[in-house]
Amino acid sequence: MPSARPSLSTIGFDADDTLWQNELFFRRTEKQFALLLAEHAEGHDIEARLLEAERRNLALYGFGIKGFTLSMIETALEISGGKVPPKVIREILDAGRDMLSHPVETLPHVRETLELLAGNFRLVLITKGDLFDQERKLAQSGLGELFDAVEIVSDKTAATYQRIFTRYGDGPGRSMMVGNSLKSDVVPAIEAGSWGVYIPHDLTWVLEHVDEPTGAPRFRRIENLGELGGLIDKLDGEG
């Protein structure tokens, strides 16, 4: 069992909805998509069918905007019985392109917290999704210089964190993962032996929802990234 004392050397950070807004733009596009197909079905049914298509296609397309766009096209064809006009397909493609070019909006306390921790810990950005889009967002955020390493992965599992924290740090036992997804950022990091710090976001994707691992000794929850430095100091004091 890992020691109760953090003895941290490495901190991993999720990107989407932890460092910058992401799900907000998916939700807005979903509403736009539902309006495009309003003559074929009710809005809630369209959104449910789209979610099912996304769930079905994750293994093929992975996470990100490109897979989301393909799922919208597939859903439009299914709901309309293959009769969706080419104009609507064009509007769906345009919506996907708009998402891929949307300016990055960093969340509160991000830069000051990373600057506080940089130099004292190895900071690793660990994000999943489309390679080009994640690289674009990191470059536009202006945060890249604060990270010692960047890992863009197809999925986040205990094995993922074991590999990354061994490669860039001193192993999972001396590492911490910070993010808004319990399913991807917190639970598998704890399973790997790391600390898992959960920062809730109001718009976390439904497919990322699992119960909080409240019984896990290395689980912590904070309300915003600005509380992270204090949490680390507290954990060190408890040692």
Rank of each mutant, 00 (worst) to 15 (best):
M1L: 10
M1W: 00
M1Y: 04
P2G: 08
R5F: 08
R5H: 09
P6E: 01
P6T: 04
I11V: 13
I11L: 15
G12E: 10
F13K: 03
F13G: 05
T18C: 15
L19F: 11
F25Q: 03
F26K: 01
R27Q: 13
R28C: 02
K31C: 04
A34V: 11
L35T: 12
L36S: 08
A38I: 12
A38E: 15
E39F: 01
E42S: 06
E42W: 12
E42D: 14
E47I: 12
R49I: 06
R49V: 07
E52F: 06
E54V: 12
R55V: 02
R56C: 08
R56W: 12
L58S: 05
L60I: 14
K66V: 13
I73W: 00
I73T: 04
I73Y: 02
E74I: 13
E78S: 10
S80Q: 07
S80A: 07
G81A: 04
G81K: 03
G82D: 13
P85S: 09
K87L: 11
V88K: 05
R90T: 06
I92V: 06
R97Q: 13
D98V: 07
L100W: 00
L100Q: 15
L100A: 12
S101T: 13
E105K: 12
T106I: 12
V110A: 04
E112F: 05
T113Y: 02
E115Q: 10
E115P: 10
F121R: 02
R122K: 14
V124Q: 01
L125E: 00
I126D: 03
I126F: 02
K128E: 11
D130K: 06
L131E: 15
Q134G: 08
Q134I: 00
R136E: 07
S141F: 05
G142C: 07
G142W: 00
F147R: 12
D148W: 12
E151D: 07
I152N: 01
V153P: 02
T160Q: 11
Q162K: 15
R163C: 08
R163T: 14
T166R: 11
Y168Q: 14
R174T: 09
M176D: 01
V178F: 07
S181A: 12
S181D: 08
S181L: 04
L182H: 09
V186T: 11
I190A: 05
W195L: 02
I199P: 04
P200K: 07
H201K: 10
L203Y: 09
L203V: 06
W205H: 15
A216E: 15
F219Y: 15
R221F: 06
L225P: 02
L228D: 08
L231F: 11
I232Q: 02
I232R: 01
D233I: 10
D236S: 09
G237Y: 10
G239E: 11
